[in-house]
């Protein structure tokens, strides 16, 4: 059985899923959103961004938005992406896994400052 590209989920792909959790975004907006939500720690470049987007598309975790009828609201020159229900479930599962880890870290008292 071939190993799936997104198993385990790479950090960039997870960030993209999170960025699309609120609204449909195009590539550059995703890049900005990721930078913002990670506090500037993760800055995706075009290669990583579009490779990750392609992988997420192939896995059915995100999909391209059909712009017909919404062109007045969106920039027609760009492709917009949307989180699918599968992608949302996966993002939730991944977040819960991290939350579990965070709980363990808290219990072990290894966190400091605002993370406690």
């Amino acid at each position: 059985m071939p190993k799936r590209k997104l198993d385990p989920l790479p950090a960039a792909a997870f960030q993209i899923l999170l960025s699309l959790a609120g609204e449909d975004l195009h590539g550059y907006a995703i890049m900005r959103q990721v930078e913002e939500q990670s506090g500037g720690r993760i800055r995706l470049g075009p290669g990583t961004l579009y490779s990750s987007i392609q992988a997420l598309l192939e896995e059915g975790l995100i999909e391209e938005v059909d712009l017909s009828g919404k062109s007045e609201l969106l920039d027609e020159r760009r492709r917009y992406y949307r989180l699918t229900s599968t992608g949302r479930k996966l993002a939730r599962a991944e977040a819960e896994k991290l939350a579990d880890l965070l709980r363990v870290a808290r219990a072990k008292k290894i966190l400091r400052g605002e993370y406690v």
Partner: peptide
């Protein structure tokens, strides 16, 4: 970083019924 990722992708059309990854 992006070049290896780009080479790994198949660029095939997205699966019609995508298989969910591990969900608890």
């Amino acid at each position: 970083f992006g070049l290896p990722l780009a080479c790994r992708n198949s660029y095939a059309p997205a699966a019609v019924s995508p298989v969910p990854l591990t969900v608890q």
